[in-house]
Design a protein around this nucleic acid. Structure first.
Lengths: 195, 195, 195, 195
DNA sequence: TATGAATGAGCCTTCATTCAT
DNA sequence: TATGAATGAAGGCTCATTCAT
């Protein structure tokens, strides 16, 4: 039983970056076959169909991102440091934390009008992101690190949006010029709301 | 000679929203066939292959967006009004100016690692956007509408990024709550830099 | 009326080497279109369909070959010289008298089991070839150039077969080694039957 | 594992006569599908694409021919008998050893200017033919069956060429008159060089 | 006569999926 | 659990041909 679960994990790990890079529609089961060196039949032992595998890959990408982010954040103690670390974590979209770039952006835009299941997964991940961020801010307010009247939820939204928008700009241009502007603006805002 | 060009245009117009909604990979020539009620062979009279048609559709989507934006902006005279109008124009991603949502976001994320031609088209459209925005701001500075020390290019970047990020959030959640936060924050920033 | 016939001829001239090189099945009407720079519709003004055009091209190739052969033969007076000239005319299959190589071989093998019309055309051309050759030989016998008991029809057959077989060998190998053997053997046979 | 190879063989066996009869370009994958009663997808399990299948079919045709020829030759002991048997083996092109006629002629003329891979296959088969023939002759010379000064390589060339040329003539005319002339001439030459 | 837009059948190939082993 | 042969629908594209202009 352990074996099956292991293979399943193995397939997901190999599939995740492919789906995140090429997109769900453009990724074929043969692509995964080739990457895993497994047989076609084997894939269907572990995944009912392509959609199930794609969903698992979407989740894996988001989990990897969250995990790595958490690991990074855990190295900092103050809320301000954590906010800075969060921002820095996403500050180089051409060398992104997970292969293929931000899975929220990638799968979100693809799923948008075509795949409600994936869309909802992305939606929840965004909400979690927001919670994480506003949690940090609120903790900082309690800590007296941040001004008491700072609207945590709103800034979480602004920060997330700016990073995603910057992600797009950076990946399209291939350089980081715009992203640096965004990061420094974000940090200035944080600074302005620091006590 | 007019006939050919007319049909070509007709196909693009029918194809554009489909590509913008389903994505390039997930849109088949048969989809376009059905939408245009034209024969499969006819598509290939006017477009060498799917990629060429897709490119034309990408451009059409971006042109439609730009055109409608310009039309909206042209109704306003002051720079501040125009900045507000620009923001408002993108403020309701669930009822977007072009069917399928922002083509820059849609095609940009899909093309990213797979289609350099489309990627470059999106990149240029973003740069044009930036130019348009910073142009408005600079004019506003000359007009004494805006503070002289406002960094036009930087704010153009921030505004664009926030709107794209907000676009994603709004479409994923299906509601406009986050987008409203973003719009109001943006307007506040504009206000703060107004004389 | 002259104009129509002229265009028809023009198309045939452009089409003939293409058909002889690629074969009938592998040559598309678009290939001819491209070669003639004429419109698709124009082809069908002059030729009912592809088959009719192909037949015309087959005939043109055979006529060109016959014509050039005749021109060459006409430079010689004695039957022996003409037999030698005939042999020499076909002695370099990698630089053949008509583009694409021997149309009898090309169209004959393709038409064989699939196109009775072309097959019959090739058959007749072969028969004509035989008549031409045996005519030369018989004239030579009357002339006392050749031995009286030489079987004209039989040698015509042998000569033709050897040249076609050599043609195949030469074109496959890309060199003329085998063809030279054949030519010299043929000439020896002619010599042996000369008075 | 045996199953796959079996099906592959089965497909080739069914495809070979079709390719040899209609030609490579004129044979569609659907033709093979129909002949094998297999699904279209199944063909591509065993053959990368049409070209690979066509090459396999070309080889199969040549192998079948060689095999049947060898079987026939093996029934004779003396070199002269074998040379006669070789000639007889090819003496009835309208009832040829492999369906569709001589694959060397068929595929050679089609591949000529369009398919270097097949062309080279045919070239090698011709060279092998030549080796086989001159081997028989040389053995006969050692045996004192044939005159010592007979040029083995040259006669191998002449014999092969005459048979191929005769093949064309016979198949075009539908009768065997010319081929009989060729065969009897060939046998006379062999006789003349016999001790 | 000439054009080129339009057609739909058919081409080669890939796809996701199933199933016997 | 794992394999890979088998399937048939669907993919993108080319074909010969027609027809209004």
């Amino acid at each position: 039983m352990a074996k099956g679960e292991e293979t399943r994990k193995f397939i997901i790990e190999k599939a995740a970056p492919i789906f995140n890079t090429k997109g769900i529609a453009a990724t074929s089961m043969s692509d995964i076959m080739e990457a895993t060196k497994l047989s076609k039949g084997s894939m269907y032992v572990h995944f009912e169909n392509k959609e199930v595998l794609a969903c698992a890959a979407v989740e894996h990408n988001m989990n990897m991102l969250a995990e790595r982010l958490q690991k990074t954040l855990s190295r900092y103690k103050t809320s301000k440091e954590q906010l800075f670390a969060y921002t820095d974590f996403f500050s180089d979209p051409n060398h992104p934390p997970v292969v293929g770039g931000c899975p929220l952006l990638n799968f979100g835009t693809e799923a948008d009008d075509t795949n409600p299941v994936v869309k909802e997964k992305v939606n929840r991940a965004i909400q979690q992101s927001q919670k994480l961020l506003s949690g940090i801010i609120e903790k900082g307010i309690s800590n007296k690190e941040f001004k008491a009247d700072w609207n945590a939820a709103d800034f979480a939204t602004v920060l997330f949006a700016m990073l995603e928008g910057g992600h797009l700009m950076a990946r399209m241009s291939g350089d980081n010029d715009r992203m640096e502007v965004i990061v420094s603006n974000l940090k200035k805002m944080i600074e302005e709301n620091s006590v």
